[in-house]
């Protein structure tokens, strides 16, 4: 049964890699939060603490030239595609060595070379844009798939519905992933949504199968993502996945999240994706040494990224007027 063993060890290697991704996302977001408290991260920022399994599971199922379309809560999705920590953290700090040299900030992380086609901060707008990328792949005959992440609150805005219908009628290779963390900013999503499952219960309106998955289980997320990506690549059109999860903190930097009942928070903290996944790997035979070494490595990576980001120069006036146009400049008249 050599082949089974090979498959098994390949699976395990992938699972270890997914664990590493989750550890890295957790460590990065925790550090980002600490740097807010030091007032080094300006503006706003939206963390994925507690939601790491979705980013890790979906990214593991994607091919290198697939596209990610993320939201303002996009640090995790950017890093999960292999973007190094230093430019992401430096972008949060508004430094010249940032991913967009300080011109985008936390909410607009983009790294085209990693397939991260942008993070979009107006609710719902990137769903039609992901459709366009998918249309391009379909037209050009590549087997690329666009994966579009968004929150539960997005399911109540018009662009969501326009995009779902559009993707369905054109059979576009796009996978929509709703991260349902139960709270639409400061309001419980169920209080403002006509159906219990904001994405899955809408799927049938667009001729799609409802797909609900435990968003705190990276393996479960990986499996549904793999199936959806394969469908898209086979020309079978879009999928809409709803992954249930919970953010450990508030909506954004300014929000302590105190509107959520303590028992709800505690119940979800008990379902923290990281310890659950770590225990699963240990039960599958991954040694404590290996897990501890991986965690230590990530901790070092965060320290190094922090040092490099803090040491980054402030961006200057040369960047202020750059890249409005494709010629690199900003001239609007002669």
């Amino acid at each position: 049964m050599t082949s089974t063993q090979t498959a098994g060890s390949t699976d395990l290697a992938r699972q270890v890699a997914m664990y590493r991704t989750q550890v890295a996302l957790r460590a990065f977001e925790t550090r980002a939060y600490d740097l807010f408290l030091e007032n080094l991260v300006k503006g706003t920022s939206h963390l994925s603490l507690g939601q790491e399994a979705i980013a890790a599971g979906v990214a593991a199922a994607m091919a290198p030239d697939d596209w990610t379309f993320a939201t303002y809560r996009g640090h995790a999705h950017t890093l999960a595609r292999g973007v190094p920590m230093t430019p992401v953290l430096a972008e949060l700090l508004g430094r010249r060595n940032g991913l967009m040299r300080g011109k985008g900030g936390s909410m607009h992380l983009t790294s085209v070379t990693h397939g991260v086609m942008g993070s979009y901060a107006v609710i719902g707008s990137h769903l039609p844009i992901a459709c366009g990328a998918a249309w391009s792949a379909q037209y050009r005959g590549t087997d690329q798939v666009a994966v579009c992440f968004f929150g539960d609150g997005t399911t109540n805005i018009g662009a969501f519905h326009e995009a779902l219908n559009f993707a369905a009628i054109w059979h576009l290779p796009v996978v929509f992933v709703c991260e349902n963390n139960l709270w639409m900013e400061y309001t419980r999503t169920s209080e403002v949504t006509a159906v219990a499952h904001p994405a899955a219960d809408r799927a049938s309106a667009y001729g799609l199968e409802p797909i609900l998955v435990d968003g705190n289980d990276a393996d479960a997320v990986y499996e549904v993502a793999r199936t959806a990506l394969a469908r898209a690549r086979a020309g079978q059109g879009p999928s809409l996945i709803e992954a249930e999860t919970y953010r450990h903190g508030g909506h954004s930097r300014a929000d302590p999240g105190t509107y959520r009942p303590d028992d709800e928070v505690e119940a979800w903290l008990a379902r923290d994706p990281l310890p659950m996944y770590r225990a699963r790997l240990a039960a599958s035979g991954v040694g404590e040494d290996e897990l501890a070494a991986l965690e230590a490595q990530v901790a070092d990576e965060v320290e190094e990224a922090t040092r490099e980001a803090r040491a980054g120069e402030q961006p200057g006036e040369d960047l202020l007027f750059a890249d409005v146009w494709a010629d690199g400049g900003s001239a609007w008249r002669n």
Binding site: H126, I129, C131, S136, R140, E162
Partner: peptide, 18 residues
């Protein structure tokens, strides 16, 4: 369809990918 956001969103996504 009569979906102006989808029309222009699709145009944008297509333009950024070739």
């Amino acid at each position: 369809p009569i979906s102006e956001q989808a029309i222009l969103g699709a145009a944008m996504g297509a333009a950024m990918t070739g």
